Each structure stands twice: as C-alpha cells, then as structure tokens.
Computed example of a mutant assay.
Amino acid sequence: MTRYVVIGAGIVGLATAHRITLDHPDASVTVIDKEPRVAAHQTGHNSGVIHAGVYYKPGSLKARLCAAGRASMVDFCATHGIAHEICGKLIVAADESEVPRLHALHERAVANGLPARLVGAAEAKEFEPEIRCVAALRVESTGIVDFTAVCTTLADLAEKAGATLRLGTKVTGITARGGEQVVHTGSGDVVADVLINCAGLHADRVARLAGVEPPARIVPFRGEYFELTPERRGLVRGLIYPVPDPQFPFLGVHLTRMIDGTVHAGPNAVLALAREGYRWSKINPRDVGDLIGYAGLWRLARKHYRYGLTEVRRSLSRRLFAESLARLVPAVTEADLVPAGAGVRAQAIARDGGLVDDFLIVARDRQVHVLNAPSPAATSSLEIAKHIVAQLPT
C-alpha cells in the first residue's frame, strides 16, 4: 500500500487527494493544513468564476487544464448538487485604443477552441444594458460557483474514501528517510512514501523544507474587492471584464455577479506585506524580509513601478476604484460601493523579475511541488489533480 501525504487543503490539494482515492483506492492518503478549515486562503477568497480559458497561451498548461477543467468542474457541480451557473461574460473594449487587444484576445480564444465571438456595442448592450463600450468579446462558457462549497464536497468525498484530514496541523519540517517522506508537525510525524506540496502561499517554503530549491519565489499580491449595494445590483446581469494588459497576469478590476446574487467589484493588485495579508495593517516581518531580500521582486518593480503605483492609489481611494469601474458601467459611483474583503494571490516570480505565467509543477524524488497555481487554478483544479497524480510514483 502506497502512503501519500498532501500538504494544503485548498482546492488543488483536496482535488488531488480525491483523485488519488479514485485512481489508487488501496492507497493511504493524508491531507495536512495548518488552518482549522478547508479553503481558508486563496480558494476561499477568490471571485468564484469558472473561467473558460480565454487568456492563456495556446498549448500551455493553463490553456489545456483550464479548458478541460471548466468542463470537469461543471460536471462535478452538477453531479454533487453544488449551485453553479453558466452565465457567460463580456470582455469590454471601452474605447478604440483597446480594440486591437480585444481582437488579439479573440484570436487566442479561437486558438484555444473556445466559444467566443466579437460583438458590437449594440449587441453587447443586449447582454449588459448598462455598459459602455465600442466592442466586446462574448464568452459563453464562463460560469460562477462557490469554490468553498466545492472544497467541502471534495473533502467529504476523500474522507468517505478513506483519506484522513489533519486540519489545524502546522508542518514544521520534512525529512527524507530512505524511501520515506517524514512530515514533522506540531502534533506528531506523518510518514509517507510520496509527498505532494499544494501549500499555495507557502509552497516555496514547503519545497525548501523538503530539500527542493524552487526556481521562483512566491510573492503575495492582495486583491481588494468592493460590493455593489443591494439596490444597485441591477446594474450588472453577469460578468463584465476590461480588456487585460497582456504584460500582467492580473485581469483588471471587473464586475462579477456571484452565485448568491451579490455583485462584487475588483480586484486590484497590490503587494501584500504578509503572505496572508488581507488588509494593509497586516504586516509579517519574516514575509517583508523575504520581499526586501529578493532580487526578483526589485527587478519586477523597476520594470513595472508605474503600474504598481496606480494599483496602490486605487487601493487607497474608493473614488479611483469607482472611476475604473465606471469605464465599464458609467452608472457606478463611489456611493454604490461597500467593502467586501480581499484575497491574496500567490504569484511566483523568477529571479530575473519575470512573472511565472504558467502553472509550475516540479517533481523530484517521490515529491511533487505545485509552485505556481494562481487563477485559473480553482477552475482547473480537477484536471490539475489528474496531471499531478499521473506523475506520482506508486
């Protein structure tokens, strides 16, 4: 019997544990997470969008696993009675200068085999009457879901299949002992044959504990959200996105109708001063020290400091946040927005200052480390799990 230990009870870790129980029903599977609940960080703070896969380089892991993952996620939700909706979305060119980028995005969508089509301003208004645009890309296969509910179901299925969840259990060290992986925790050791690191915001640190030097460093970016007041939710029917800047992995502030009927606005993207820094006041000295000492971050900052300053200003000003949204829906005003929390994106940055654009999964000596899995990892999670399990020694 092969013993597997999965570090991280976010959606990728839980999907992987569930996949192991399906593919290797005789295996022993243990999931460890320092938090007392599943989906405590990236998964539980995201926008709840089932992405179609428009943005990603054809042939990349993101493009392949997102397209397949969207279908898998919809099937999983339908099978297990998890509320979801395939509502489609509009990616909006607010002025003529953005039209060439919109056309390039359409070409990428076509290359990825997605049902996306260019529409004029009049047809775009049939989907979203309150938008202002000169053209838009309609992506029919985008949807919405509560990914925390997906995690709860994955955890339940894994446990029913014999997996053990050790929540509230912090990993303090990892030792290779012969052919075994010994995971040291505050409540005793877990001995396994194979280790899978899905620790998200701490994935690079877990890799180092396991003796693997990651090729990139996790840098936390906080994405702050507002919510439209209840009486203004009617301004948005579905999902409204700007045309993204291809230099960055962030999609720009957008408007998203959630599965519960609320409408979220955001996120921006500002450097967080803690890996779990959901507000400006949360500062972790160790995390700040890591940021200051990492040459890759300074190289990124020198290249994109203007973008970063814009994001900081928008973070500190609700008026500027509202103005960004008003480029998409002019009726949105500062008075329509109420704070709705934040998420932190675990973005891997290489030593040369480049943003790691694709999923980064490294296999070493009976270990697999998921070292970059930001959006669309939630959408892709069931397929990421298949990809991981296919690499595992048995």
Rank of each mutant, 00 (worst) to 15 (best):
R217T: 13
H184E: 15
L273R: 14
E231P: 01
D358M: 14
E180H: 02
T153I: 08
T142C: 14
A135W: 09
D287H: 06
V110W: 02
D358W: 15
M258F: 03
P242K: 11
L325G: 11
G120K: 06
T172A: 10
H184Q: 15
A301T: 15
A135P: 07
R275V: 00
I218K: 12
R237S: 13
L382R: 00
T310L: 07
V356E: 13
K57T: 15
A373Q: 04
C77Q: 11
V183M: 02
I349D: 08
H387G: 00
G120R: 10
A155K: 12
S315G: 14
M258D: 00
H41E: 13
G261S: 02
V110T: 14
I388C: 00
G143Q: 11
T153Y: 00
S72Y: 03
I361N: 03
I292T: 04
E85K: 14
S317G: 13
Y56H: 14
G296T: 12
H202W: 13
Q247T: 03
T79R: 14
N372L: 00
S324D: 15
V288G: 13
I174M: 00
V110F: 06
A269P: 03
L255K: 07
E130L: 03
H202Y: 11
T164G: 08
Y4M: 00
T79K: 09
A124P: 07
D33T: 04
R306Q: 15
A124Q: 06
G8T: 12
P25H: 01
T43L: 11
F321H: 10
Q181S: 05
E140L: 12
G238V: 00
F127N: 05
N46C: 09
I349A: 11
P100N: 02
A67Q: 09
A155T: 04
T379Q: 05
G296L: 12
I196G: 08
R275W: 05
A158D: 06
A122H: 11
L90V: 11
L102Q: 04
M258A: 09
V119H: 04
A340G: 10
V182Y: 06
A17H: 05
G162N: 09
V119G: 06
V356F: 10
E227F: 09
N268I: 01
D33I: 03
T142V: 14
V191A: 02
A265Y: 01
V183I: 12
D290H: 15
Q42I: 11
V74F: 09
C66D: 02
A203P: 04
A9L: 02
E227S: 15
V329A: 06
D189R: 05
N197L: 06
G162Y: 13
D26L: 08
V288N: 10
V389H: 02
D290C: 09
R279H: 04
I86L: 11
T2D: 08
P58G: 04
P215F: 07
R222H: 14
G188R: 08
A9C: 08
C66Y: 07
L235F: 14
V329L: 04
A155D: 03
V12L: 08
F321P: 02
H264A: 05
P242I: 10
S375Y: 01
Q367F: 04
A39G: 02
F221T: 08
V329C: 05
S380Q: 00
A269S: 11
G341T: 11
R314E: 14
S281L: 07
L360M: 12
A340N: 15
A342Y: 09
A274P: 08
A161W: 08
G10M: 04
L316D: 09
V338C: 12
R318Q: 15
G113D: 07
R208N: 01
